[in-house]
Design a protein around this nucleic acid. Structure first.
Length: 800
RNA sequence: GCCGGCAUGUCGGAAUGGCAGACGAGGCAGACUCAAAAUCUGUUGGCGGCAACGUCGUGUGGGUUCAAGUCCCACUGCCGGCACCA
């Protein structure tokens, strides 16, 4: 072996750190590049190979940018608030602070051992007071603008973790942390009005360079739909029942209404409802159902008719029954629907189960069989009869109901306001005081940070009270407004709070006066390239875009969108092709790989193993292949010849420069590495390489395997660090081939290959092709009816 | 049900509509070795053939084209996300 990788890796890691060569410079004249990777949650398990792959992409881009002369900010930090540390604290009796510090130290050490070119002077930790001070500051700004509010409503609640969860944290009806079934609970909690930014979050997608699937997923999550709000009269009471519909043009086909079991109208007019006992029983039944049961029973519609109340269709004055049923959700639209069973399958199923009328208003289906949801001619619909275009009929109906004063165009979103509250200890305290006289009062900005108090017992209350509620000295305080006795909010912020703005703090991590200085924000933002996991597309990515849009609106930052470009890595699967998990015993520890094969090998392998965006199984033999490659590169210093480079070598070298340079930008790291492997094989075949060519080669390799390249650079007498040396320039003239080998087809089938001078004219090429024995044989007695020549690519003879 | 993606040797994967299988792994054969590992050399899609070469071949069926892994239509199978969203 040429080098002891352990020795050279620690040698260069120490030198880089000592000379702080990866330090980002504020306000430099160079063009800036802000590369970002999702900062880790410092778990007790240590780093995962997935972290290595996630960081390696931007690591390579950042290293290339430095060599290209950019002022690069490539920071790292820790998203350290959260339940795992707290649960571990409850289990072991250690304070989460102690556990977190230990884990951060371990993670830092591990990341250093891989040789990532982070700027270690800008490390942030979301659990430090000087950090969460600004998380609280942003919360208070939102409170000031009415975007943070308290509401008693139905929330997702995890009975196992004993916390309220946001919609984003309970996708699929499962708790994101422990995967228990989530239940609905009526609770007084804090929300952030993210729905007010729904349109901005949608429009902002036009401004950014995200992969199409990420944009789609965010659009689906926001779930904008347009339609109309229609007011139905209710017989006997002086109040309208408003529904939301995407098909107001089917209003003539309405045969009943359905409201959610939790709809407030039920309690309000309980005295008018003759069957309240049945209603109450049904409500209880719904409450007991888990999300799983509800989705399993989609076809079997249940519900109860409201006896005593009748709806009135505003378009034709018809009386229609009103039901409660759990297929209508309080959380979407108005919690009430107009049912058009002929043209909505759910309404159809319900109508069949409850014997309601089915009136066809769109021709084209067979409503004896199922609901017809396609397009067609409007019938049984008064002034809409004869309309065939959905758009037109909807528009016409909205005009009509607006004229009548019974409805208007409306917009709905699937996204709900963000339940921004956790009944746990290890999070940012919500800086609000509840005063009997003044209501919810903000803690004054100058009193931030509102510190987490020291507690002995982190166990939450049985009904989901925060551990902070038990600390009298924390809870009892004076109202900042009137000075009378008041009580502090004891909930803390959810796990996603700190990560919603962390990329701004990297820009000015030690600023005591503001979250980051204005001129520095203006210089560095937006993040030029952000890489992370697909699992964050509808959580962290939505949340942080929301916060950034808000900060833009209040003038803190100068761009609405935080991330100019986003990419996502694919999973690394276990060697067996399954997702890595402790229970399956197929987990690869990156530190084992560093120890056995070296950091350079690990880095190269995670990028070489396959398409960066695809899930790929780990393969130990392939790791050895990468190590073999790097060792063969290192051995080139023993194959040095006197310059200058041969024309053949120059040609191959410049082709590789071109390929590696563009492949890195396209995130095609696997083919970038493959092209360097090809070059290496060619050099071995040629027998030697001159010093200057070798220097160029290792510059290309440096972003991937920086330690061995630094060592070789030193050996070759290179100046300074190769990590800061200038990126090789591609010279098109040197990559030009004198001759080309191209294929010759007969009737589209390859028959032979010929060598032609590059850019030879058509006649010359065809002459060479026609002189080829194999081509002559393939054509035989037939006549050439067409001759096709694509320059430098292919010849095709069509014969008959 | 809706949205998005994928399908290529033994495996991971390459291929601006122009020589399918680059590169790596694995296999096979050989060199070195007492031996193994490591290293090095050659070889490696199927079928036929001593060979030259022929022939088939990118999930399935059709289509466009001089030419299709690539474009279009229909289907099948996997993966991810959302889901009684009115």
């Amino acid at each position: 072996m040429k080098h002891n990788f352990k020795r050279i890796e620690s040698k260069w890691q120490a030198k880089w750190e000592e000379e702080k060569i990866f330090r980002a410079v504020d306000g430099s004249d160079k063009p800036k590049f802000y590369g970002l990777v999702e900062f880790p949650y410092p778990s007790g398990a240590g780093m995962h190979v997935g972290h290595i792959k996630a960081y390696s992409s931007i690591e390579v881009v950042s290293r290339k940018r430095r060599m290209e002369g950019y002022n690069v900010l490539f920071p790292i930090g820790f998203d350290a608030f959260g339940l795992p540390a707290e649960n571990y604290a409850i289990k072991t009796g250690n304070h989460p602070r102690v556990i977190t510090d230990k884990n951060i130290e371990r993670f830092s050490e591990q990341m250093r051992s891989v040789g990532f070119s982070f700027d270690w002077e800008r490390v942030i930790d979301t659990t430090q007071e000087d950090y969460y001070k600004w998380t609280q500051w942003i919360f208070l700004k939102m409170f000031e603008k009415g975007l943070a509010f308290r509401d008693k409503a139905w929330v997702n609640y995890c009975p196992s973790c004993k916390v309220v969860l946001s919609n984003e944290d309970s996708q699929g009806g499962k708790c994101d942390i422990c995967h228990s079934d989530v239940v609905q609970k009526s609770k007084d909690v804090w929300y952030l009005r993210i729905t007010q930014y729904a349109d901005k979050l949608l429009e902002g997608l036009d401004l950014v360079d995200y992969p199409e699937n990420i944009k789609q997923q965010q659009m689906n999550w926001i779930g904008k739909s347009t339609g109309a709000l229609v007011d139905f009269g209710v017989e006997g009471i002086d109040e309208k029942l408003q529904v939301y519909t995407t098909r107001p043009d089917t209003l003539f086909g309405v045969t009943f209404m359905v409201i959610a079991p939790e709809h407030p109208m039920i309690d309000k007019y309980a005295d008018k409802i003759r069957n309240m006992d049945a209603i109450k029983a049904y409500r209880q039944e719904c409450n007991k159902k888990t999300e799983f049961e509800r989705t399993q029973l989609v076809k079997d519609k249940t519900g109860v008719k409201l006896e005593g109340l009748m709806g009135i269709n505003p378009i034709n004055g018809k009386q229609i029954p009103i039901f409660i049923a759990d297929y209508v959700m309080m959380g979407y639209g108005t919690g009430a629907i107009m049912a058009v069973p002929a043209h909505d399958q759910r309404d159809y199923d319900f109508a069949k189960a409850f014997g309601a009328d089915i009136i066809e208003v769109i021709k084209g289906g067979n409503i004896d069989e199922e609901a017809y949801t396609g397009d067609g001619e409007m019938v049984n619909s008064g002034f809409l009869n004869g309309f065939t275009n959905k758009k037109d009929s909807i528009k016409r109906m909205i005009e009509e109901i607006e004229k009548m004063g019974v409805g208007k165009a409306g917009v709905q979103y699937k996204m709900k306001d963000w339940a921004f509250t956790r009944q746990r200890y290890w999070g940012e305290p919500i800086p609000i005081v509840h005063c009997e006289y003044c209501g919810d009062v903000a803690v004054p900005y100058e009193e931030l940070p509102l510190r987490l108090p020291q507690v002995e017992n982190f166990v939450p209350g049985s009904e989901g009270e925060s551990p902070l509620a038990k600390i009298d000295s924390y809870v009892n305080c004076k109202c900042p407004k009137c000075g009378r006795d008041a009580k502090r909010e004891t909930d803390t912020m959810p796990q996603w709070a700190g990560s919603s703005w962390y990329f701004l703090r990297y820009i000015d991590p030690k600023n005591d006066d503001f979250l980051a200085a204005e001129e520095k924000l203006n210089y560095w933002m937006p993040v030029d390239w952000y890489n992370g996991g697909m699992e964050h597309v509808t959580r962290h990515m939505i949340y942080s875009r929301f916060w950034h849009h808000f900060l833009y609106d209040i003038g803190v930052v100068n761009t609405p969108e935080p991330y100019a470009k986003r990419s996502a890595q694919g999973l690394i699967l276990g060697p067996d092709g399954d997702k890595m998990s402790k229970s399956k015993g197929n987990v690869i520890d990156p530190l084992d790989i560093v120890n056995e094969f070296g950091a350079d090998t690990l880095r190269t392998y995670v990028l070489f193993m396959g398409d960066y965006g695809a899930a790929t199984p780990w393969n130990d033999s392939s790791v050895r292949g990468c190590k073999r490659f790097l060792e063969r590169v290192a051995a080139l210093t023993e194959k040095l010849s006197d310059g200058p480079a041969s024309a053949e070598l120059e040609n191959k070298l410049h082709k590789t420069i071109k390929k590696v340079t563009s492949d890195i930008e396209d995130m095609k790291f696997n083919t970038a590495i493959a092209s360097m492997m090809t070059l290496l094989n060619d050099i071995y075949a040629m027998g030697s390489i001159d010093k200057e060519s070798l220097k160029i080669f290792i510059k290309l390799l440096c972003p991937f395997a920086p330690h061995v390249c630094e060592e070789m650079w030193e050996e070759l007498g290179g100046e300074g660090f190769i990590s800061l040396a200038a990126w090789p320039q591609f010279d098109p003239a040197k990559a030009v081939d004198a001759t080309k080998e191209i294929g010759v087809q007969v009737n589209g089938k390859l028959k032979s290959t010929i060598v032609i001078p590059t850019d030879a004219d058509k006649d010359q090429v065809l002459a060479i092709a026609k002189a080829n024995d194999l081509v002559i044989r393939a054509i035989g007695e037939k006549n050439i009816v067409k001759e096709i020549y694509v320059p430098n690519k292919i010849v095709n003879f069509v014969v008959k």
